[in-house]
Amino acid sequence: MTQPRKRAVVFAYHNVGVRCLKVLLAGGVDVALVITHQDSATENIWFESVLSLCETESIPYLTPIDAKGADLAEAIRAAQPDLMFSFYFRHMLPQAILDIAPAYNMHGSLLPAFRGRAPTNWAVLHGATETGATLHEMTVKPDAGAIVAQQAVPILPDDTAFEVFGKVTVAAELALYHVLPSLLAGSAPRTPNDLTKGGYFGGRKPEDGRIDWTKPAQEVYNLHRAVAPPYPGAFTDVGPRRYVIERARLQNGNVQGLSPGLAVVDNAILGVCGDGRALVIHSLLADGLRISPAELRAQLAEGQA
C-alpha cells in the first residue's frame, strides 16, 4: 500500500532556501505553505528568490513581518503539516509554532561550531579550514537541537565568504537530499548537539568591516575575505574618503619602512599591516568607484598636504 505524501510547511529564504525547497519537492514532499521574506530595498540582493520559486511551482506563500503573530500560527495549523523546515529563514520561531509539528533547521556550519548568525562569515574571519551545513531539530534556543545530518566542505586559504557560501549551499542540498528518505520514514539518526563546544556568534553590521591596520596581516586578510563583495567589504577611512577592498591577496614576505595603512609601491596598492606584512590590493574602491594606483597616490598625497 502506497504511503500518503508527507505535508510540510517550509520557512525559507536565500540560496539555501531555494535549493533545499527544491530537494523537498524532488523528494515527493507535499509543500503546503512557504513562509518567506520580501526582499529589502536597502539590501544588496545577490541571491536567489524563494518567492519566485513559489510562484513558479504554484506553492502558497506568506511574507509576514515577524513570526510571532497568532495569525501566522493559525495559517500553519490550517496547513496541517506533518513536518516543518527552516532553511535560512531570518526570524526565530516561537514555541507556539514549534509545537505544531516536528521542525528541522538547516544551519550553515558544522554544529556545534559557529552557532548563531552569519556562520560562514564568522568561520572565514576566524581562519577556519572547514565548515559545512547541519540539519538539526529546532528548539526555541537557536542551533541547539539534536543533529540529524551534516555535510562538510573545505575553506581554502584564499576563499572569500561568498565563495564558501556557494559550497555551503551545495552542502545543505546534499545533507538534506541524503537524509530526507529516512527523515520522512521516521528513522533519521539523532546525534546530541554538544553546546559545551563551538561558540555562539551574533549578527554582523557593515561597520564591523573597519580595518585596523595595526593587526597582523593574516587577521586583516581574513577580515577582507569574510566581508568581500557582495558583502559590504573591509574598509578604511583616510580623510573624507572611504576606501573598500574589492579584491586582494596576502603578500609573501615583509615590506620595509612603511607605516600601517594604504600605500602605493611600484605601481601596486598595498595594505601595510602591523606585523610588517601587507595585502596586495588588486581592486580598491574609493567612495564606491574603482581607482588606480596613480589616483590613490595622488589622493594620499593630497591628504598629507
Rank of each mutant, 00 (worst) to 15 (best):
G145I: 04
W122F: 06
L125G: 10
T120H: 01
R117D: 00
A113P: 00
E137K: 06
T134Q: 13
A146C: 06
G127P: 12
N121T: 04
H107M: 07
A123R: 01
M138C: 06
L110P: 09
M106H: 09
R117Q: 07
G116C: 10
R117W: 15
R115Q: 03
F114V: 00
E137A: 12
Y104M: 09
T120S: 08
K141I: 14
T120D: 02
P102S: 09
N121F: 00
A133G: 14
N105S: 14
P102C: 08
E130Y: 02
Y104E: 09
V140W: 02
A118T: 10
A113V: 06
H136K: 11
G145T: 03
A118F: 13
A113F: 12
P112C: 13
W122T: 01
L110S: 10
A123F: 07
N121K: 00
P142A: 11
G145R: 03
W122M: 05
P102T: 05
K141E: 15
L125Q: 12
K141G: 00
P142I: 15
T134L: 13
G132W: 10
T131P: 08
Y104L: 08
G108P: 08
E130L: 11
A146L: 02
L110I: 13
A118Y: 14
S109R: 06
A133D: 12
D143M: 12
G108V: 01
M106S: 13
T134V: 13
P112F: 09
R115N: 02
T129Y: 03
G132L: 11
P102E: 04
P102R: 02
W122L: 04
H107Y: 04
W122C: 04
I147T: 02
P119R: 01
F114H: 12
Y104C: 05
T131E: 13
T139F: 02
P112I: 10
G127I: 10
L135Y: 05
H136T: 07
F114M: 11
R117I: 02
A128R: 14
T139S: 14
S109H: 05
M138G: 03
T131L: 07
R117Y: 14
L111P: 04
S109D: 05
T131N: 08
A144C: 06
A123L: 08
A146W: 01
T120I: 15
A133H: 08
S109K: 06
L125D: 13
H126L: 15
T139W: 04
G108F: 02
L135T: 10
L125F: 12
A103H: 04
G145E: 03
W122V: 02
E137F: 01
G132M: 10
